[in-house]
């Protein structure tokens, strides 16, 4: 399970980005994206901004859950009051995705016990309530630190966030929840 997290400003400009992997189920916190996926992730993430703009006026919540899907990439969104977007791209590992698809396929027919322990794990099924809750907590913690960042009198809207302390905090939130 790998994650790519980005903060997008009000002019659709990136302010911050961070790649990490899961720390649950013995994960080592390293992202396992294929080499050519790094720039693709940026495209996929930014292409979901159109959908964010549609959803943001129908739902006043800060956390907008999974808003877009591109093959096995799922995009979760969190919208701050100041119209800055937090986007998280999550990509379940191939086996977990297959398991999730399998359970989703049969869930309407027979509620079989989950064949693999993995499918209840955070992130294995991107739309499960557990995953949504974990991502919500992650976003919540990042939001708190983001507000602290913008409280700096030297910070103007849409400036990139380069603080190493902020990066550490985001990494810590990722380790804690995802």
């Amino acid at each position: 399970m790998s994650y790519y997290f980005a903060i997008i400003g009000t002019q659709d400009n990136p302010l911050f980005e961070y790649e990490f992997g899961t720390s649950k189920q013995g994960g080592d916190g390293q992202a396992r994206f294929p080499d050519d996926a790094h720039h693709l992730n940026q495209f996929v993430l930014h292409s979901s901004l159109d959908i964010v703009e549609e959803v943001q006026w129908t739902n006043g919540q800060l956390y907008l859950k999974v808003i877009d899907k591109f093959f096995t990439n799922y995009i979760s969104c969190f919208m701050t009051a100041g119209n800055v977007k937090f986007l998280l791209l999550h990509q379940p590992t191939a086996t977990a995705a297959a398991a999730a698809a399998a359970t989703a396929g049969v869930s309407g027919v027979t509620p079989v016990a989950n064949p693999s322990r993995n499918s209840t794990a955070v992130g294995a099924n991107p739309t499960s309530p557990q995953t949504e809750e974990a991502i919500k907590n992650f976003f919540g913690e990042v939001y708190e630190n983001y507000v602290k960042a913008i409280m700096s009198p030297f910070y103007k809207v849409n400036m990139g966030i380069r603080s190493p302390v902020f990066r550490q905090r985001v990494a810590a939130a990722g380790r804690k929840y995802l």
Binding site: P14, E17, Y18, E19, F20, G21, G29, Q30, A31, H38, H39, G160, P164, V165, R167, Q168, A171
Partner: peptide, 12 residues
């Protein structure tokens, strides 16, 4: 924005 690798946390 430059690509920043995973886990590249800088210790303050």
């Amino acid at each position: 924005m430059s690509h920043l690798g995973p886990g590249k946390a800088v210790s303050s």
